[in-house]
Design a protein around this nucleic acid. Structure first.
Length: 591
RNA sequence: GGUUCGGUAGCUCAGCUGGAUAGAGCAUCAGCCUUCUAAGCUGAGGGUCAUUGGUUCGAAUCCAAUCCGAAUCACCA
């Protein structure tokens, strides 16, 4: 039980015995006491003044007296200032915490709760390589999965690959027209980048053709529809759908190149999936659900044969769910896939990590599922995250302002190498150990940078200022861990009699924060927000560092004190490692 | 125009289920390596929490209005 929870319980009990009234934990607030006051935790008693019809001063004094007499083992003293009841917690409480958890690698994690959650993330298109926005998505999805696991959920990570459609055909047409049979092997270009290059070439050529047509007197709208390369692409999509062998072969070949490229990137950034869905397999799903919807009168068929749902009563618009030619649209496929996930995995919750530009779409998806009375409708949750923008605004592939994922990863690793070499602390590492270290630090800096911000908010990335390795960063926490490990290699942990130890303020600060780790994990899960953990871990590392510079561990005043501090250091290292792991970040033993 | 989200230090962000003098990091300035890793620590300067009004013992936090910014409102995915 957390200290805050314990205090709440004691206060409720004391109020009951004092005034004979029942209160719940929500009727008053417990805060950490501000450093300028005496005490550890504070009960804010203003909210109790009215129901008890007592003056704040009387209430505070009475409650403080009862708490310290009835729970003397937990509270050693109190003071009352202007409505704030500051309580001092017995040192034995923290000694106990240390004793039980200093070597507990599972500290803060919950037992399995029997709930199954699917989390869909990454979801790339196979016509271009991954960029910075995908990185935020991948890190978020992976981290939220880990956080939920730590809270006792069984988690399935899934990915839907958008591997078909007009945008894929654009790359294919451009490759046919301009590539002269170029392959990743023949050019030495990573497969996803090669295909992406032809996607760009398509757009260049398309723009050129439109300009030519307009110059010859055609209206811009007509030119956009009639540019030869666009007509070719549309024909290719029809050929693909009819299974034209030549088109299918090209499609498989080029997608194969892309997947090889993605594999390299995913491996580098540490993303993986338990289940991968391909849109080419799922795009026909959902049509039978539309039929059900028609018979339930949830959907309406228009004279031209197209099928719609009217969402105007819910403040939204009319939405098409089936084209007049009977083919399905985006939303139809998503309903089908939601059904498939539910059938295959029997999940209790389905989380979609998708950018906030799709808030409307996801709202519609859930609403349609609810109107159809589908059993999983209420389990759909859109984990919406903000775009990563540049100081100049949105990233635009056409203007070449996209920050490529592979480039950024490489840049981070190079920067980690540069810093490490300048500091020269690991000169005895062999080349393989060095590469692992550079990767750990570089990726750590990047992941922490993208995860430390509230997912809901859009964030700004300035490519001119490289991602920092000092301060509120991944390497700062990694460094704190490595430093502790260095001590633990030299000083063995042994058992000791700690019953008489008292804590110094800086020691107590670290223990306070360690105690809050379980709450941080729970909060992060509740809000599906890794930044809660990132902030917590930074706070812990910072407090440990303050303690570390002020007090020696190896040369502590007494041997018991030394053991006590070693336990604190050990527990801090475990928490940092465990918490960083939930962010997808490894911590090195040395750096 | 409708809907949704956002506006906190020079910059990037915490804090938002109302609580004591609004916090970090970066950047700037001043200190700290002959004992455990200085990717660290200590300190200083830097704020009209977009604006106005309301709710109350108390508002960055809740409510309303206004201003500014973004996303979205496709027979694209």
């Amino acid at each position: 039980m957390s200290i805050v929870h314990k205090i709440q319980t004691c206060v409720v009990a004391s109020l009951q015995s004092l005034y004979g009234q029942n209160f719940s934990e929500k009727d008053f607030q417990i805060n950490q006491t501000k450093p300028e006051f005496e005490g550890d935790y504070t009960v804010v008693i203003f909210s109790l003044v009215k129901p008890l019809k007592k003056s704040p001063d009387v209430l505070g004094q009475e409650l403080g007296t009862v708490l310290t007499t009835q729970h003397g083992d937990l509270f050693t003293g109190f003071n009352f200032i202007k409505g704030f009841l500051n309580l001092s917690i017995a040192d034995s409480y923290w000694l106990d915490l240390l004793q039980h958890h200093h070597n507990d690698i599972c500290f803060g994690k919950q037992a399995m709760n029997g709930q199954k959650v699917m989390i869909e993330y990454s979801s790339p298109n196979t016509n271009k390589p991954l960029h910075l926005g995908h990185l935020r998505n991948n890190f978020l999805g992976w981290s939220v999965a880990e956080i939920l696991k730590a809270n006792g959920y069984e988690v399935f990570k899934s990915c839907i690959v958008n591997d078909r459609g007009i945008h894929i055909c654009k790359s294919m047409i451009a490759w046919q027209l301009f590539a002269n049979g170029a392959t990743p092997e023949s050019t030495g270009i990573k497969g996803d980048h090669l295909v992406g290059d032809y996607y760009v070439k398509f757009n260049d050529e398309y723009k050129k053709q439109v300009a030519t047509l307009v110059a010859n007197g055609m209206s811009e709208a007509d030119a956009e529809k009639n540019a030869p390369i666009m007509l070719q692409t549309q024909q290719m999509l029809l050929d693909w759908e009819s299974g034209n062998p030549e088109v299918m072969t090209l499609w498989k070949t080029m997608n194969g190149w892309v997947y090889e490229g993605f594999d390299v990137t995913y491996k580098a950034i540490g993303s993986d999936f338990d289940k991968t869905y391909y849109e080419s397999n799922t795009y026909l799903l959902g049509k039978d659900i539309v039929q059900q919807g028609l018979s339930k009168n949830v959907f309406q068929k228009k004279p031209d044969g197209s099928v719609w749902i009217d969402l105007t009563p819910d403040g939204l618009d009319e939405k098409l769910v089936l084209r007049k030619d009977g083919t399905s649209v985006y939303i139809t496929q998503d309903i089908g896939l939601a059904q498939l996930k539910h059938d295959e995995f029997g999940i209790d919750q389905s989380i979609y990590v998708i950018g906030d530009e799709q808030n409307y779409h996801m709202k519609v998806l859930k609403l349609i599922a609810q109107k159809l009375g589908l059993p999983y409708a209420d389990h759909i949750y859109h984990l919406s995250y903000g775009m990563v923008e540049l100081p100049t605004g949105k990233m635009k592939s056409r203007e070449g302002t996209v920050v490529d994922a592979d480039d950024l990863v490489q840049e981070m690793i190079d920067t980690a190498r540069r810093h490490t070499e300048e500091l020269g602390k690991v000169k005895d590492f062999n080349p393989e150990e060095l590469n692992t270290l550079f990767h750990t630090i570089g990726l750590g800096a990047m992941k922490f940078y993208l995860l430390r911000v509230d997912p809901k908010k859009k964030m700004i990335f300035n490519p001119e200022e490289s991602i920092d390795f000092h301060g509120f960063t991944g390497p700062f926490i990694q460094y704190t861990h490595a430093r502790i490990k260095s001590i633990l290699r030299k000083e063995p942990l042994t058992s000791f009699d700690n019953s008489t130890e008292l804590f110094l303020p800086l020691e107590k600060q670290v223990l306070y924060t360690l105690e809050q780790f379980p709450a941080a994990i729970a909060d992060a899960a509740k809000e599906l927000n890794p930044s809660v953990l990132a902030n917590y871990l930074f706070h812990l590392a910072k407090q440990f560092n303050s303690f570390y510079t002020e007090h020696s561990i190896g040369n502590a005043e007494t041997s018991n004190k030394k053991q006590l501090r070693l336990q604190m250091a050990n527990m801090t290292a475990h928490v940092l490692k465990s918490g960083m792991q939930m962010l997808g970040i490894a911590v090195p033993e040395r750096m």
